[in-house]
């Protein structure tokens, strides 16, 4: 504080532009609206967290026993995995079924989302159309994928069809947002130049907009593919869409075989790591060319 005061004194003395500061304390930040909102939110969250922990109903859970039991389960699951109800090759096949589900829904979603994304980008479409599409997709996005699958299961019946439609639906809404935002970030100049040369909308889109945002589009699409893989595992169980998720569901709920769950988890984990490595490589390559 002392240093601050000295600073003000010095500057007011030497700098003719600075009038002597009226207040003695020099504040380092102004209290504006956003700061107040942020501080209040943090305070509220802290209070709520503390309250929640204090007011939990712990019943007669013995923490030591519960923790030990969980650890034993994890140990059995991951250190003694085995396959009992299907072979290794069958498991690999099922993993690829799940991967196929993720791939198909990302592909459908991506294709539809490119078109809708162009219409949702404010610089390429009218404000009204853009707002309409953005509003619609944010509604679709707000409802979880699982719920969409179950909604479509009413018409298509539980199974892979409902899963594909529901997951595509949610992928579209996610990718429309991602694509349209990368279109909107585009430099207006190139679009203006092509407009001034008499090119039409489709030509501008394919010659300037898409080439410029291709890197973003690919990395967003791949991210959605990873999400869809995780969702596809869950859909196998929740909607009976098949794949490794369904085997996991059977192992846990039907055979009650915790060791098999461990083995399946390893399969999913390995594939997730492979996807991650592939995705990182892809992004690196895009950056080099990008």
């Amino acid at each position: 504080m002392e240093a601050n005061e000295q600073m003000t004194n010095v500057s007011s003395a030497t700098d003719p532009f600075l009038k002597p500061y009226p207040d003695k304390r020099l504040k380092s930040r102004a209290w504006n609206k956003s700061l107040v909102v942020m501080r209040t939110t943090l305070l509220l969250l802290t209070v709520l967290t503390v309250y929640a922990f204090v007011s939990f109903d712990y019943k007669e859970v013995d923490f030591k026993e519960a923790a030990l039991g969980t650890l034993t389960n994890i140990k059995v699951m991951f250190l003694e995995p085995h396959l009992k109800h299907f072979t290794f090759l069958q498991a690999v096949h099922q993993v690829f079924v799940t991967l196929g589900l993720a791939f198909l829904t990302t592909l459908f979603g991506g294709l539809i989302a490119v078109l809708l994304g162009l219409l949702a980008a404010e610089n390429l479409s009218s404000r009204r159309v853009s707002l309409l599409i953005k509003g619609l997709v944010s509604f679709i996005r707000a409802v979880p994928t699982v719920l969409w699958v179950l909604i479509f299961a009413v018409a298509a019946g539980l199974g892979s069809v409902a899963a594909v439609i529901g997951m595509t639906f949610h992928s579209v809404s996610y990718l429309v947002k991602a694509y349209s935002e990368s279109f909107e970030e585009l430099d207006r100049g190139a679009i203006e130049a092509l407009q001034a040369s008499g090119a039409n909308w489709w030509q501008i889109v394919f010659q300037a907009v898409i080439p410029s945002s291709l890197t973003y589009m690919i990395s967003w699409t791949f991210l959605r593919f990873e999400i869809n893989f995780a969702v596809a595992v869950a859909m196998g169980a929740a909607a009976g869409a098949g794949g490794i998720g369904f085997d996991m569901f059977m192992a846990s709920n039907f055979y009650l075989d915790i060791r098999e769950i461990g083995a399946i988890t390893y399969f999913i984990l390995i594939l997730a790591i492979l996807l991650e490595v592939f995705g990182a490589g892809l992004k690196k390559k895009l950056k080099v060319n990008g």
Binding site: D187, G189, E192, A193, Q207, A208, P211, S212
Partner: peptide, 12 residues
């Protein structure tokens, strides 16, 4: 039309 900031498509 020719522009101050060239307005080329950088990736092409």
């Amino acid at each position: 039309m020719v522009f101050q900031h060239y307005n080329l498509v950088n990736r092409l």
